[in-house]
Design a protein around this nucleic acid. Structure first.
Length: 423
RNA sequence: GGAGAGAUGGGUGAGUGGCUGAAACCACUGGUUUGCUAAACCAGCGUACUCUAAAAAGGGUACCGGGGGUUCGAAUCCCCCUCUCUCCGCCA
């Protein structure tokens, strides 16, 4: 969420910038400022009464120690009324703060200047295209047919074990999956990311801090008996490492990489266009997370884009990089680039990575700050994250684009990980 | 799962109702001393909200795992929860 100070000082700017996200913030910001004024007023009153209470209490202590019981009892009587007032004020303060917080949570992050207005996918801006479209065999098969033909992914078996969207990878398919994970992690390490292997189930606090709760509750699997949530992305546990933490400035940027399975309920988003690996309830992903100095976060974003581009490049996949328009940009993001690879048999672009700078929007909620040498005030860090990469669609593209009359050719860069050159 | 012990500032750790936002030590930062290093000595050293000033400085309030309660007053007493440690049970 945006900070109160920023909202107080930049109301008009925020309203203007949020138009790009098709969000009308006027009313909400007015409410926020009004509630904040009330909050300050109420708190001031309560604080000064409390100060009075504290000094009377001290006095009573002294009176008692001098054995002046009657005077002490008289002083006690004085406190009753003040106490009552404080109680009332603190009740209303709590309710003001609750409302204020709700309003604050309703304001999206303001988009970076590069973000253009727009409503849908068509309005995204292509900033780069790379790789070569593959030469296809006649009548290319989509990956779900190839998966069946070579018995490397079994969707029906997954349905038996769990349900739709939980495929079973078999034989060389399983090995290819494992190869991709290791490839992505090794490449990340080479780019200076340090690996973490976090839990894939998190508590409520973590889900709130990265913003999955309360608004996106339906997207996560919930374990009611312990009130835990299955992570929809490694962003949740990895970013939460830095919840409530004050970092020394010289530790920045922090670059983490993590492989985890991801779990998404995807309620209501099923349809004919999501066959095969295109959308799953459980999938593997390697995620990169960067905690950056505010002045350097766009540098970090570029670094992440370069890293992801290197991955699709090495896998010989045709790709394009899209800058999301205002309407497509997520609630928390200031700037997002999507990587899409072309899936030759399906004749469509598949999103395989989304790299975003959240600036201080996420860190404010997360309370992740840093201390600059010589400065007193702690400041919020900038957080960024991106997939590097999400496995299923990469797998789909590799399988489809590299199909030959005899089988499926494994990209050169992966061979040392798979141990075989074709399926 | 059962029984017991515990949770205090960056760390160790004192503190069982007012003189404690919190001793002491260590770490850290600045200074003095010094040819350099080390040592010694002095000083500083939490977070959030808020007020005055709006740079610097100062004041108020809250925070001793989390939440609630008793009291004029709670780190300290009571209740609930969470976590850690030890023992027992179970187990990959």
């Amino acid at each position: 969420m945006l900070t109160l100070n920023f909202i107080r000082e930049n109301k008009d700017l925020i309203i203007e910038r949020l138009k790009v996200k098709n969000f009308d913030a006027g009313q909400t910001l007015d409410n926020i400022i009004e509630l904040d004024n009330k909050r300050r007023e109420t708190q001031q009153k309560a604080d000064s009464l409390q100060a009075e209470m504290n000094s009377i209490s001290k006095e009573i202590g002294h009176l008692f120690s001098q054995g002046l019981r009657d005077e002490a009892d008289a002083a006690k009587k004085k406190t009753w009324e003040i106490k009552e007032k404080i109680k009332k004020l603190s009740i209303s303060l709590t309710s003001i703060e609750k409302k204020l917080n709700q309003e604050l949570l309703a304001v999206p992050n303001i988009p970076n200047e590069l973000v253009t207005p727009g409503r849908s996918e068509e309005d995204n801006v292509k900033v780069k295209e790379g790789g070569k479209l593959p030469e296809m065999v006649n009548n290319p098969m989509p990956h779900w047919e190839l998966a069946k033909k070579f018995d490397i992914i079994d969707f029906e078996l997954g349905t038996k074990l769990t349900g739709a969207g939980f495929p079973v990878y078999k034989g060389k398919g399983a090995k290819l999956q494992r190869a991709l994970i290791n490839f992505f992690l090794d490449e990340g390490e080479a780019s200076g990311f340090s690996e973490v292997l976090p839990p894939v189930i998190v508590n409520e606090d973590s889900s709130f801090a990265t913003g999955q709760l309360p608004d996106k509750e339906g997207m996560m699997y919930h374990v009611p008996i312990d009130n835990y949530y299955l992570i929809p992305t490694a962003e949740v546990p990895v970013t939460n490492i830095y919840r409530n933490v004050i970092l020394d400035a010289d530790r920045l940027p922090i670059k983490n990489i993590a492989y985890t399975p991801c779990f998404r309920r995807e309620a209501g988003s099923w349809g004919a266009h999501v066959r095969g690996l295109n959308r799953l309830h459980q999938f593997d992903k390697v995620e990169i997370v960067v905690i950056a100095h505010p002045d350097k976060s766009y540098e970090a974003l570029d670094m992440m884009l370069n890293h992801v581009e290197g991955l699709v490049d090495k896998l010989d996949l045709p790709y394009r990089i899209m800058r999301l328009c205002g309407g497509e940009l997520s609630f928390t993001s200031a700037l997002t680039y999507d990587f899409e690879v072309f899936s030759a048999a399906q004749q469509q672009w598949l999103e395989v990575s989304s790299v975003s700078n959240f600036e201080s929007f996420q860190s404010n909620r997360l309370k992740c700050r840093f201390r600059e040498k010589g400065e007193k005030q702690n400041k919020l860090v900038h957080t960024l994250n991106g997939s590097a990469l999400a496995l299923p669609r990469i797998m789909a593209a590799i399988i489809e684009n590299n199909q030959t009359p005899d089988g499926i050719k494994i990209p050169e860069a992966l061979v040392k990980y798979t141990g075989f050159k074709s399926i």
